[in-house]
Computed example of a mutant assay.
Amino acid sequence: MPTYTIAELAREFDITARAIRFYEDHGLLSPSREGAGGRSRVYTARDRTRLKLTLRGKRLGLTLSEIKSLVDMYESPKDTVAQMNRFLGVLAHQRETLEQQQADIEMALAEISAHEDECRRMLADVESRDAETPDTA
């Protein structure tokens, strides 16, 4: 079975070793320890898969507790109705959250556009007045 060092996983997934240790602290990864005093972490293919799923969950905007629940679910039999319904519930909640964030962003962008338009109009008015006023210098 292949094993990985923290540096190898960090490089593969383009994250820091600190991030990997953070996920370990939250129970998402559980490497074994080797070397003098057990200081070297050794990650298995299971840990690599869990890290991959964790990063995917983060990209979807899930919390670490939601990710842990889903990753733990991933490792148990996948054909239970309760698990599938739970997963659908998590996905529906996340979709709702993202759609609300999208609506909020669209509203903020519309407000920014309105302020930009007003600022440009005011700037044009000032420039127009300056052009009409003779230079007395």
Rank of each mutant, 00 (worst) to 15 (best):
S30Q: 15
A10F: 02
E8K: 14
K52I: 01
E34Q: 07
G27I: 06
T54A: 12
A36I: 13
M73I: 09
Q83A: 15
K68C: 08
I67A: 04
D25Y: 04
Q101D: 04
E8M: 08
G57F: 00
I105D: 04
S32G: 06
L9Q: 04
I67F: 01
V71D: 07
G35P: 01
V81S: 13
A17Q: 12
L51Y: 02
R21A: 01
G57M: 01
P77V: 11
P77M: 08
V90R: 12
L51T: 03
Q83D: 14
R39N: 03
D14P: 04
Y74K: 06
D47L: 02
A92V: 07
E34P: 02
G61D: 11
R39D: 00
T49C: 06
Q100H: 13
L62E: 02
T49L: 15
E8C: 11
E8R: 12
I15W: 01
F13E: 04
M84D: 15
L55T: 01
E24D: 14
D104A: 08
R11C: 01
R59S: 08
D14Q: 13
R48F: 01
R48V: 03
L62P: 07
H93T: 15
L64V: 14
G61I: 05
R86C: 09
L91Q: 13
G61A: 02
T54Q: 04
R86K: 12
R48N: 02
R95V: 13
F22R: 07
G37N: 13
V42K: 10
T44C: 08
D104V: 01
L60I: 09
S30I: 08
L64G: 08
S69R: 13
L28S: 05
G35R: 00
T63P: 00
L64Q: 06
A19W: 03
D104C: 05
A36E: 13
A45K: 05
R86G: 11
T49R: 10
V81G: 09
E66G: 08
R48T: 01
E66H: 06
Q101W: 03
D14E: 09
L64H: 07
G37S: 11
S30M: 11
H93W: 11
K52V: 03
Y74I: 07
R18I: 09
R48S: 02
G57P: 00
R95E: 15
T44E: 08
G27W: 07
A103T: 11
F13L: 03
G35L: 00
N85T: 12
R39I: 00
E75I: 09
R41K: 01
E12S: 12
R95Y: 10
V42D: 00
L29T: 02
I105G: 07
R48I: 04
T16H: 07
R56I: 05
T54S: 06
Q94W: 07
E66M: 14
E12D: 09
R56Y: 07
D25H: 12
E75A: 14
G35S: 01
F22E: 03
F87N: 10
D14S: 13
L88N: 14
S30P: 10
E96H: 14
I15D: 03
A92D: 12
K68P: 09
R59M: 06
K68F: 08
A19L: 12
